[in-house]
C-alpha cells in the first residue's frame, strides 16, 4: 500500500515536473518594496521571541508586523515613517539600532571616546617611558635563573 502510494507520488511529481516546469514566483511582488521590508525587518526586534529580528522570527506577531510593514511600504512610506509607526506602539525596544538621543549618547560615542582616550594615554605613556625607563630587559643573572628554572626536571 505504502509502496503504491510512493510510486504514485513519484509519477505525479514527474508529471507535474514535465508539464509545468514553471518559473517560481516571488512570494511578494514588488522588488523595491520587498527590499525595503527586508531592510527594515532586519533592524527591528521581534517582541515575542525577543532575541530575533522581525526578519528572522517565525512567530505569528512577526508575520503580522512584516505584513503591516509591507502594507506601509506599498503605500510609499519611508523607512523613518514606518519605524516611527512601530516605535509609537512598541517603544524604542523594537529598534535593534538604538536611536541617537540624550540617553544613548554614551552608547554611540562611548566606544570611540574610549578609543581616543586609550590612544592618547598610550602615546603619553610611550613618550614618558622612552625617556625614563631603564634598559633592563633581563639581567644576565635573571636570565640564568629563568633558564635554570625552566630546565629543571623534577
Amino acid at each position: 500500500m505504502k509502496l503504491i502510494f510512493r510510486l504514485a507520488t513519484v509519477f505525479c511529481l514527474m508529471f507535474i515536473a514535465s508539464a509545468w516546469a514553471d518559473e517560481a514566483r516571488p512570494l511578494h511582488d514588488g522588488v523595491a518594496v520587498e527590499a525595503q521590508v527586508q531592510r527594515l525587518s532586519e533592524e527591528l526586534r521581534c517582541l515575542v521571541c525577543q532575541n530575533q529580528t522581525l526578519a528572522d522570527s517565525h512567530s505569528e506577531l512577526a508575520e503580522d508586523l512584516r505584513q503591516e510593514i509591507r502594507a506601509m511600504a506599498t503605500k510609499g512610506m519611508s523607512d523613518q515613517q514606518i519605524t516611527d509607526y512601530l516605535v509609537e506602539r512598541y517603544g524604542d525596544f523594537v529598534r535593534y539600532r538604538p536611536p541617537l538621543k540624550s540617553t544613548t549618547l554614551l552608547l554611540w560615542f562611548g566606544p570611540f571616546a574610549l578609543l581616543l582616550a586609550g590612544g592618547i594615554g598610550l602615546f603619553l605613556m610611550l613618550r614618558r617611558r622612552e625617556k625614563s625607563a631603564e634598559d633592563l630587559p633581563l639581567s644576565a643573572d635573571e636570565a640564568r635563573k629563568v633558564n635554570a628554572l625552566l630546565n629543571k626536571e623534577s
Partner: peptide, 25 residues
C-alpha cells in the same frame, strides 16, 4: 537571497544557478 513560492517543478534563479523544486517527501 530570494523568497519564492515553489510548486513541484518550479524553477528559481539566483546568482546564475537554477534551483528546481521537486516537491517534498
Amino acid at each position: 537571497e530570494i523568497a519564492v513560492r515553489m510548486a513541484p517543478g518550479d524553477v528559481a534563479h539566483l546568482a546564475g544557478f537554477d534551483f528546481t523544486f521537486e516537491g517534498v517527501t
